[in-house]
């Protein structure tokens, strides 16, 4: 089967500016996912650059913009994709080469929410106990794979990537607020109480629409906002 692609290409070593490349590739019957097709394409043109690793949707390497929507190439079925398949790097981040973007800003925002349990009481010799119900509060939060599909689909993040934490970072912020073992809720809310860091979220919900793990950052952001309001009251 032949498949047609329209690929965003840019190699700073040779290209003055980015361009869209029309290319087709003969697929093998074993090629089922978009990543399989890209790997096949690379055997035709070894200069095509993209990140990939686990090929099962858990490492978060191969996020890209596929026919206008962010997603992971490795869990996107080839069947059903409109051709030519238009593939671009994640929007809103600087492009280094082809489909590879500079994710510095994304991780900087993630790190800014202090993504680790804070608890100054000395730990016991066994676990810090947590009921199954309390642990369930973390479901839908901890599974994030940091692929950046959400943040790079968010207009608020496009305009203010240096000031707005973005959906991925805020989901992580709530993951620690919701953890009964974490004692720094107040400090975490202080850290987000700012016209940009949290409140630039306008519930556009692109993040929910694109998340390959079916997580809901908008809901988590809503919960943080609720806590902010409660705190003032």
């Amino acid at each position: 089967m032949k498949m047609q692609f329209k690929l965003y290409r840019y190699n700073p070593d040779v290209d003055a500016k980015p361009y869209m490349q029309d290319i087709e590739v003969e697929l093998e019957p074993s090629d089922k996912k978009l990543l399989d097709a890209l790997v096949r394409l690379k055997t035709v043109d070894d200069s095509l650059s993209f990140r990939r690793s686990c090929r099962e949707g858990v490492c978060g390497s191969d996020a890209m913009n596929i026919n206008g929507k962010n997603g992971l190439a490795c869990v996107t079925d080839i069947a059903g994709l409109k051709q030519p398949v238009e593939i671009r790097p994640l929007p809103g981040l600087p492009v280094i080469r082809d489909l590879i973007v500079d994710m510095t800003q994304f991780f900087k925002q993630y790190n800014s929410i202090k993504p680790y349990v804070i608890n100054d009481t000395p730990p016991p010799s066994h676990e810090r106990l947590q009921s199954p119900e309390d642990r369930e509060e973390l479901d839908g939060l901890y599974e994030c794979i940091l692929c950046a599909c959400c943040s790079t689909s968010c207009p608020s993040f496009w305009w203010n990537p240096d000031k707005f934490v973005g959906p991925a970072g805020l989901l992580a912020a709530y993951r620690f607020i919701a953890d009964t073992r974490d004692t720094a809720t107040n400090e975490r809310l202080d850290n987000l109480e700012d016209p940009y860091r949290l409140f630039r979220c306008h519930s556009i919900m692109n993040c929910v629409d694109v998340c390959p793990k079916h997580l809901n950052p908008t809901k988590a952001i809503g919960k943080i906002k609720e806590l902010m309001v409660k705190r003032i009251a």
Binding site: Y116, H126, E127, R128, Q130, D134, L138, R181
Partner: peptide, 19 residues
Amino acid sequence: VIELEHFGMPFDRVESGRI
């Protein structure tokens, strides 16, 4: 494993609150 739990690893729990 207890150390990982103290680091914040989100293990599933049994009724007693343990891993």
